[in-house]
Amino acid sequence: ETFPLDVLVNTAAEDLPRGVDPSRKENFLSDEDFKAVFGMTRSAFANLPLWKQQNLKKEKGLF
């Protein structure tokens, strides 16, 4: 299941849709939104070091 970017960005855990893991908001973006937000594919993002993934998520309001 995916959700629009505005539902996930800068949203407190208690305000997220049911079933969304607040530590993994990026997994609930569509592939198109994911690429638009991070400028890379999911596989490229997954290959980044964890610290870099976290920094990007913070920068984009998805942490």
Rank of each mutant, 00 (worst) to 15 (best):
S43V: 13
L50K: 11
F63L: 14
E14L: 08
P22Y: 03
F38V: 01
F38S: 00
D15C: 14
P22F: 02
T41N: 12
L5N: 03
A46S: 13
D31A: 11
T41F: 06
G19E: 14
P4F: 03
K60S: 08
V20T: 06
R24K: 14
R24F: 14
L29T: 01
A46G: 11
F45E: 00
V37Y: 04
A36L: 15
R18V: 15
E32D: 12
Q54Y: 11
S30Q: 04
E1C: 15
L16N: 05
P49T: 07
P49H: 04
E32K: 11
N47P: 00
E59P: 01
F38A: 00
T41G: 10
M40L: 07
K57L: 08
E26K: 01
A36S: 12
F38Q: 00
F63N: 12
K57E: 05
A46V: 13
P17H: 03
L29H: 01
S43M: 11
T11N: 07
L56Q: 02
E14D: 13
L50M: 12
A46N: 12
D15N: 07
K52G: 06
E32F: 12
R24Q: 10
G61Q: 05
P49G: 03
A44D: 12
A12M: 08
P17R: 01
S23L: 15
V7L: 15
L16R: 02
G19K: 07
V20E: 07
E1Y: 14
F38D: 00
D31Q: 08
L62A: 02
A13C: 15
F38W: 01
K35V: 12
D21W: 03
V9G: 04
L8D: 03
T2D: 03
D6Q: 10
P49E: 08
E14H: 09
T41H: 09
E26S: 02
A36W: 13
L5K: 04
Q53D: 00
T41Y: 04
P49W: 00
Q53E: 00
K60Y: 09
T11G: 15
T11F: 07
E1A: 13
K52I: 12
L56I: 08
F45Q: 00
R24D: 04
N10V: 09
G39F: 09
D31G: 06
T11C: 11
S43D: 14
A12F: 06
D31S: 06
N27K: 13
A46F: 11
E14Y: 02
L62I: 05
E14I: 08
F3T: 03
E1T: 13
D15R: 03
L5C: 06
D33L: 04
D33Q: 05
S23N: 15
D6E: 14
F28P: 02
R18C: 15
T11H: 08
K58N: 08
N27D: 15
D15L: 13
L5F: 08
S43K: 12
V20A: 05
L62M: 06
K25A: 07
L5V: 09
F28N: 07
A44Q: 13
A44M: 11
E59I: 13
N47T: 13
D21F: 01
R18P: 15
D6I: 09
L5Y: 14
L50A: 14
A46R: 12
K35A: 14
K25D: 04
G61P: 02
D6M: 10
R42H: 07
V20G: 03
G61H: 05
P49R: 01
G19N: 08
A36N: 12
V37A: 10
D15V: 01
L29D: 01
D21Y: 03
D33W: 03
S23I: 07
A13R: 09
N47E: 13
A44P: 00
P17D: 07
K58T: 09
N10T: 12
Q54M: 14
D6T: 10
N27W: 10
E59Y: 07
G61E: 03
D31M: 07
L62W: 05
L29N: 01
P49S: 09
P22R: 02
D6F: 10
N47I: 13
R24N: 09
K60M: 09
L50Q: 09
A13V: 14
D31N: 09
V7T: 09
E59V: 09
V37T: 11
F34R: 00
A36Q: 15
G61D: 06
P49Y: 01
F38H: 00
V37I: 09
N27I: 08
P49D: 10
A46D: 10
V37R: 02
A46H: 12
T11Y: 06
V37N: 04
L16A: 03
F38C: 01
F28M: 04
D15W: 05
L8W: 01
K25M: 14
R42W: 04
M40C: 08
L8S: 01
A12P: 13
D15F: 06
F3R: 04
K52V: 12
E1D: 11
V37P: 00
L5H: 05
Q54E: 14
D33T: 07
P49I: 01
V7Q: 09
D33E: 09
V9A: 10
A44K: 10
G39Y: 07
G39H: 13
K25C: 06
E59K: 10
E26D: 03
G19T: 08
Q54D: 15
P4W: 04
D31C: 06
F28W: 15
T2N: 06
S23M: 15
G39I: 02
G61W: 04
Q53R: 11
L16C: 09
V37L: 11
M40S: 01
P22V: 07
A13Q: 10
A13D: 15
F3S: 02
Q54S: 11
E32G: 10
D15M: 04
E14C: 13
F3D: 02
E1W: 12
T2W: 13
K25F: 04
N10C: 12
A13L: 12
M40V: 06
R42S: 04
K57G: 01
N10Q: 09
N55R: 09
T11L: 11
N55K: 13
V7E: 06
R18W: 15
L62P: 03
F34C: 01
D21G: 01
P22S: 06
E1S: 12
N55C: 13
G39L: 12
E14F: 02
F45D: 00
L56H: 04
F34K: 00
F63W: 15
W51P: 08
N55H: 13
Q53G: 00
T2M: 07
F28L: 06
L29C: 02
P4L: 05
Q53F: 00
F63I: 10
L62V: 04
A13F: 13
V9M: 11
P17W: 03
L48M: 10
K60N: 14
V7S: 08
R42D: 01
Q54H: 11
A46K: 13
S43C: 12
P22G: 06
E14R: 05
S30Y: 02
F63S: 14
E26M: 01
Q54R: 12
R18Y: 15
E32Y: 10
V37H: 06
D31F: 05
A13N: 15
T2Q: 07
K25L: 15
N55Y: 12
A44L: 10
K25Y: 04
L5M: 07
F63P: 03
D15I: 01
L29E: 04
D15S: 08
E1M: 15
L56D: 01
T11A: 11
L8R: 01
P4S: 08
P22Q: 06
K58D: 07
P17T: 01
S23R: 07
K25H: 02
V20L: 06
E32I: 11
D15P: 02
G19R: 05
D33V: 07
K25S: 05
W51K: 10
P22I: 07
E59T: 08
F28A: 09
P49N: 05
W51C: 14
A13T: 14
Q54N: 14
P4I: 05
N47Y: 11
E14A: 11
V7W: 14
K57Q: 02
W51D: 11
S43F: 13
D21N: 06
F45Y: 07
P17C: 10
S23E: 15
V7I: 11
W51E: 11
K35G: 12
N27S: 09
W51L: 10
K57H: 01
Q53S: 03
G19L: 06
S30M: 05
Q54K: 14
F63G: 15
E26W: 02
V9W: 07
R18F: 15
K60P: 01
N27V: 09
F28H: 14
S23Y: 15
W51V: 11
F28V: 04
K52S: 13
K52C: 12
D15Q: 06
D21H: 06
G61L: 06
F63Y: 14
L8M: 05
E32C: 08
L8I: 05
G19S: 09
L48C: 02
V37C: 12
F3G: 03
L5W: 08
G19D: 08
N55D: 13
K58W: 09
F45N: 00
E1L: 15
N47L: 11
A46C: 08
L50W: 14
L48G: 00
K57T: 03
V20C: 09
L50E: 13
K60G: 06
Q53H: 00
Q54C: 10
S43R: 11
